[in-house]
């Protein structure tokens, strides 16, 4: 496993109050690949994901130690600029959480808060590009003023991805992005992820082991706050090094 890591954690520990949620996690996540994090509920995979854009800051009484290095900068340092971190590291959530606004305004939101692109045609161009990226432009180009809530769940989730892409991030974190979708929509979103990985570094947390096997290039298995195994997806699924990984993958627990 030789690659230049896009994200690297060094001795990462996280406590929610008395609960030790992440225990000495050291992981290297390759650029322009899909990395899947798997493991049973409560193993810390979402917590780890939420460290990469510092969303855990929202939860009171959280203590983080160690380092998270993205492009040679430790984002845990007090002088780290949260706003540019979150612009660079976008996030897609479990539920397609569009704003109760028009499709246009959903996409414009990020541009507006970052004071990017003030001219109307530039905004339009960015929106077209974003929607095209996620394969929605043809369907939606005449309905931009419609409420985003009128879209199907799959379209909404695509819109959420477009909303992230429009800010030109380098990393996209996906927290169980398909768990609210039906199997057909899930496959379509997975196809989209395979396209996106050529330009972006993707990290996906999933409950669904088959999804990890289908879509990812690298897989990390977590259990009780520890990273048990990390490697090439094929290797992790066919020839795991750890007994625990094998037991989980073969469905003996989880």
């Amino acid at each position: 496993m030789e690659f230049a890591p896009k994200i690297e954690t060094v001795g990462l520990n996280l406590h929610y109050g008395d609960f030790h949620a992440l225990q000495d996690v050291n992981i290297k996540i390759p650029a322009q690949n899909i990395t899947a994090m798997i493991g049973p509920s409560g193993c810390g995979k979402s917590t780890l994901l939420r460290c990469f854009n510092r969303m855990n800051d929202l939860i009171e009484h959280t203590r983080v130690e160690g380092g998270i290095i993205i492009d040679e900068h430790d984002i845990l340092k007090p002088e780290a600029d949260l706003i540019s971190i979150r612009r660079k590291v976008g996030m897609v959530f479990q539920r397609p959480n569009v704003f109760d606004l028009s499709i246009y305004n959903n996409l414009r939101f990020g541009l507006r808060i970052h004071r990017m692109l003030n001219k109307r045609d530039e905004v339009m161009e960015a929106i077209e590009h974003g929607l095209e990226h996620v394969g929605l432009w043809q369907e939606l180009k005449d309905k931009l003023k419609k409420s985003a809530l009128t879209l199907t769940l799959e379209q909404q989730q695509r819109l959420c991805i477009a909303r992230v892409l429009i800010l030109k991030p380098e990393i996209i974190l996906l927290d169980e992005p398909c768990s609210a979708l039906d199997p057909v929509s899930t496959l379509k979103i997975e196809d989209l992820l395979r396209v996106l990985k050529h330009e972006y570094t993707l990290v996906i947390v999933t409950h669904n082991m088959q999804q990890a096997a289908r879509v990812s290039d690298y897989t990390g298995f977590m259990y009780l706050g520890k990273l048990i195994e990390f490697g090439n997806t094929k290797q992790v699924f066919t020839n795991p090094m750890e007994k625990l990984t094998e037991n989980y993958i073969s469905g003996r627990f989880g």
Partner: peptide, 26 residues
């Protein structure tokens, strides 16, 4: 809902922008 704040913050909004655009209107 907390999720409204989460989306806004995850897109890189400041706390004030989040309050102003995603919380107060509701």
């Amino acid at each position: 809902p907390l999720s409204f704040r989460e989306i806004s913050l995850s897109l890189g909004a400041t706390k004030w922008q989040t309050v102003r655009y995603c919380v107060l209107p509701y």
